[in-house]
């Protein structure tokens, strides 16, 4: 009887833990929606800050929304261009089974764990060294570095899932490794590659610590790669840091906008990968 009671106790503890974990997700969403929704307005997403915006006057955070999209898109594209070849080279057709690949994976794992503030500091050192100032380009580069380990890992996982028989069929027909990789592997793994890219996009649009010193902040829309650029996470952070309740309200609304974008992204990518999966040969 005792051992059954113990099992019951632990089972309810586990259920309670799971409820707390899942509950905390809904709590975070609920708190941000509850506080952010009232000050969310059309002008907030269609206007840039007017004079005295940070004192509670007119305007919106269009600069930050557009800036964040630029940063996240730019860095995602760059990251794809680097990650895809790396992930493909980690197939066993290339160097996947070698000792080198083992160390490459290990160092990518370490990069994965490196905090974004460290990327930010590193980015700033490099920019100082090159004589660059905080700019859209600086932000894009740092975010690219931040996304690399996430993207490569995720892409490698899906590339690994491509059936060997398919590749062999392609080799038998006389295709080279490159032709097989592009024509069979990339095509087969495309849904996963898209998901990996969206995952990294989400990380890029939400990160603040890495672009704090590298992207800068400005009230105007981004005009060139070499100008400072505003971003949503920093808009949240700076507005929250003002002593004015009206502006803090807007910080909550900005956080809500960011949350909506990120949640929409992750739901879309889940949906897309499910849709695409149907067209894949297993």
């Amino acid at each position: 009887m005792d051992k059954l009671r113990e099992e019951k106790l632990f089972k309810s503890l586990m259920l309670a833990s799971l409820a707390i974990v899942v509950g905390s997700l809904f709590l975070v969403i609920a708190v941000v929606v509850w506080n952010g929704a009232p000050s969310l307005s059309l002008s907030m997403i269609t206007q840039t800050p007017k004079g005295g915006y940070y004192l509670g006057k007119e305007g919106g955070i269009l600069n930050a929304i557009v800036g964040s999209l630029y940063l996240a898109f730019g860095s995602m594209l760059l990251a794809i261009m680097i990650s895809l070849p790396v992930a493909l080279s980690l197939q066993k057709d290339y160097i996947g089974k070698t000792k080198a690949a083992y160390y490459i994976r290990l160092s990518l794992d370490v990069l994965w764990g490196t905090p974004s503030i460290v990327y930010g500091a590193f980015g700033f050192i490099v920019m100082l060294y090159l004589g660059m100032r905080a700019s859209l380009l600086g932000g894009i580069i740092v975010l690219t570095l931040l996304q690399l380990p996430i993207m490569i890992r995720a892409m490698e996982e899906v590339v690994k899932l491509v059936p060997e028989e398919l590749k062999e069929a392609s080799y038998t027909l006389g295709a080279t490794k490159l032709e097989t990789t592009l024509g069979v592997v990339v095509k087969q793994a495309l849904p996963g590659i898209v998901t990996a890219a969206l995952l990294a996009f989400g990380r890029g649009i939400g990160d603040a610590a890495s672009i704090l010193f590298t992207a800068g902040y400005t009230d105007s829309l981004p005009r060139s790669l070499f100008d400072p650029v505003a971003s949503l996470p920093l808009a949240v952070f700076f507005q929250l840091g003002t002593p004015f309740p009206e502006v803090q309200q807007r910080a909550y609304a900005s956080a809500l906008i960011l949350l909506i974008i990120v949640l929409a992204l992750s739901i879309t990518s889940r949906y897309l990968s499910k849709r695409f999966m149907k067209n894949i040969i297993r």
């Binding site: 899942v22 941000v32 506080n35 996470p233 952070f237 929250l240 949350l259 949640l263 992750s266």
Partner: peptide
């Protein structure tokens, strides 16, 4: 049903957690 929710939790940006912390 639960694992995707946990992935969602992982995707929420740090500043949003910060705002949640300040508010709640």
């Amino acid at each position: 049903k639960v694992l995707p929710l946990i992935d969602l939790l992982a995707g929420i940006p740090p500043v949003v957690y910060g705002v949640f912390g300040v508010l709640a």
